[in-house]
């Protein structure tokens, strides 16, 4: 079994999820997530050797669409929803660093 989730764990997870937490929130969320994970300890403790995982409840397979262009969006309609645009593109603050 794993140890109870720490404040550092929660801070790291918050960064991965692009959230920032005040000190009091970090404290509170650490306790609350710990409670939920304690409840999940019964699952973490189960010996499930040899049991296959189920990611889809209903077995459907090989769903394929024909390679036909359709369903294009109107650029103006899409850009109208954007917080900031420039020359037909989405404008964002400077991106520091490349995609990981």
């Amino acid at each position: 079994m794993t140890e109870r989730i720490s404040r550092d764990d929660v801070a790291h997870v918050a960064w991965l999820a692009r959230l920032s937490l005040r000190a009091d929130e970090l404290e509170r969320f650490t306790l609350q997530l710990g409670d939920v994970l304690d409840h999940a300890a019964d699952v973490a403790a189960l010996d499930l050797e040899g049991v296959p995982p189920t990611s889809h409840p209903y077995p459907v397979g090989n769903v394929l669409r024909a390679d036909v262009p359709d369903g294009a969006l109107d650029r103006a309609e899409v850009l109208a929803q954007a917080p900031e645009t420039e020359e037909g593109q989405f404008r964002v603050p400077p991106v520091r660093g490349e995609a990981p």
């Binding site: 669409r65 262009p69 369903g71 294009a72 969006l73 650029r75 899409v78 020359e87 037909g88």
Partner: peptide, 17 residues
Amino acid sequence: SGSPNAFGGEPNTNIDP
């Protein structure tokens, strides 16, 4: 999805939901 796979179009024209 169905928007065209095409190189060199005007920005944000080959897009779909």
